Simulated assay, not measured.
Amino acid sequence: MRIKAGLERIPGGMMVVPLLLAATLNTFAPNLLRIGNFTEALFVNGAGTLIALFLLATGAQINVKSFGVSVGKGATLLGIKWIVGAAVGLIAYLFAGDNGLWLGLAPIAIIAAMTNSNGGLFVALVGQYGNKEDRASYSLLALNDGPFLTMVALSIFGAMGFVDGMFSIQSFIAVLLPILVGMVLGNLDEEMRVFLDQGSSMLIPFFAFALGMGIDFGAIVAGGLTGILLGVMTVLFTGTAGYFVFKAFKWNPIVGAAEGSTAGNAVATPAAIAAANASFSQYAELATVQVAASTVTTAILLPLFIAFLVKRLEKKGYAFKQGNVIKVDS
Rank of each mutant, 00 (worst) to 15 (best):
P30E: 05
A41F: 04
A96Q: 12
A47G: 05
A23P: 10
S66M: 14
F28T: 06
T39V: 13
W82T: 12
L121G: 01
G36C: 06
A109R: 06
A75F: 14
F43V: 08
A60F: 01
L101P: 02
L53S: 10
N118T: 11
A112N: 09
V71H: 09
F95C: 08
T76S: 12
G79W: 08
A112R: 05
I83P: 02
V69K: 15
L105C: 07
D134G: 14
G85T: 03
G72K: 12
R135W: 02
G74E: 10
V44D: 08
T49N: 09
G104V: 04
N37W: 01
T39L: 00
L50M: 15
F95R: 02
G130D: 10
F54I: 07
G119H: 09
L55R: 00
G36P: 06
P107G: 07
G68V: 14
L78I: 02
V84N: 06
A47R: 11
G97S: 13
A124F: 04
T76C: 11
F54E: 06
I91R: 01
G100T: 03
N116S: 14
A23F: 09
F54V: 05
G89E: 00
A109P: 04
G72Y: 01
Y138P: 00
L101N: 01
L25A: 11
I80E: 04
N63R: 14
N131C: 03
L33W: 09
V64F: 15
N118V: 02
S117F: 10
G89T: 04
V88Q: 00
I80W: 06
E40L: 03
N118F: 11
A52S: 15
Y93F: 15
A96W: 07
G104S: 06
I80V: 15
K81M: 13
K65G: 09
A41R: 07
L90A: 11
G79V: 07
I108A: 03
Y93D: 11
N63G: 14
I51A: 13
K81D: 10
V88W: 01
I91V: 15
A112P: 10
I62S: 03
V44T: 12
K73Y: 05
V69I: 15
S117Q: 13
L53Y: 07
K65C: 08
D134A: 12
L32G: 06
I35V: 15
G130S: 10
E40G: 02
G119C: 09
L78W: 13
G104Q: 05
I62Q: 09
P107E: 10
A87K: 00
G85Q: 06
K132L: 13
F122K: 01
Y129G: 02
K81V: 13
V71M: 14
A23M: 13
A96H: 07
W82K: 00
N45S: 11
V88R: 01
A57H: 02
M114P: 13
G119I: 12
G68C: 14
I111M: 13
G89A: 02
F67E: 14
G46S: 12
T76N: 04
K65W: 10
L25E: 11
T58F: 00
R34F: 01
N45H: 12
N116P: 08
N26H: 12
V88E: 00
N131V: 04
G127H: 05
G36K: 02
A136K: 00
S137F: 03
A87W: 03
L125W: 04
F54W: 08
M114Y: 13
L53R: 07
G127Q: 06
L103Q: 07
A22K: 02
F95H: 11
S117P: 07
